[in-house]
Structures are given as C-alpha cells and as structure tokens.
Design a protein around this nucleic acid. Structure first.
Length: 109
DNA sequence: TCCGTGACGCGAT
DNA sequence: CATCGCGCCACGG
C-alpha cells in the first residue's frame, strides 16, 4: 500500500471545503516535489475526490470547456471567490500542514 | 526501447 | 499580460 497514487489521493482529500490547492503544492505535500503532472493524472483516473479544489499554481483553472465551467460553479458554491478567470488565492489558498509540525497535540477537535 | 502526450510549473522574452 | 521553451513524472503505442 502507500503507493504514490494513494498518497496523493489522501493529500487531496485533506483540502477543506471553501479552500483550494495547486497541483504542485499537493505533489510536494504528498512527498513528491515536481510531480505536479502526476497529481493531475491521479485526479483524472480516480474519482470521488474534491477535484474542483485543485487549480493551477496561480489559481487558474486548467480544465477545458464545460469541465472548467463546472469547476468554477462548484467552487463558488463552496464560497470561493474568483478574480477574473482565476481563484482568489490570497483568500482561499490552502497551506498544507508541515510534516514536521506534527507536534500539535490533539486538543478539542 | 524511443516518442508523444497531458487537468503542470516557472522563468525569460 | 501573452507566448515560448525546458524540466518534471508516468503511461500508452
């Protein structure tokens, strides 16, 4: 287990509602810096994932045609604001917790 | 085994 | 801001 694909999938699932992340950031958080394309691939192959929360490095939707429209609609439905054609990363970019910062004790929930 | 392709990223022009 | 080019990873023909 713990295949790269599973690792990436798990990372994508951690993105909270109303927030978005990028292919590169996800690849890095999963432990595979530079494998941004691998993330996109995973998204296309697997499903049941919050794919709409994954956008380009600058908040730009990398999908084409209707899929791009749908993604935007879904994100807006989650409260994500857009600035022109891109997501307002200033407000919705999700920063994955550092692997080192695991010192946080579970307090409350 | 080499080549092309893709929901990528980023610097240079 | 629009384009181009090169680097990155994995898969299919």
């Amino acid at each position: 287990m713990s295949s790269t694909l599973q690792k990436i999938v798990a990372t994508i699932r951690r993105i909270p509602r109303g927030k978005v992340s990028t292919y590169g950031a996800i690849a890095r958080a999963a432990g595979y810096p530079g494998a941004a394309r691998r993330v996109a691939w995973t998204l296309h192959r697997s499903f049941g994932l919050p794919w709409q929360r994954v956008v380009g490095a600058r908040g730009e939707i990398k999908l084409r045609g209707d899929s791009a429209i749908e993604q935007r609609l879904r994100l807006e439905a989650e409260g994500v604001s857009f600035r022109g054609r891109k997501v307002d990363m200033k407000k919705h970019a999700y920063h994955f917790p550092s692997a080192n910062a695991a010192k946080r004790k579970r307090r409350g929930k």
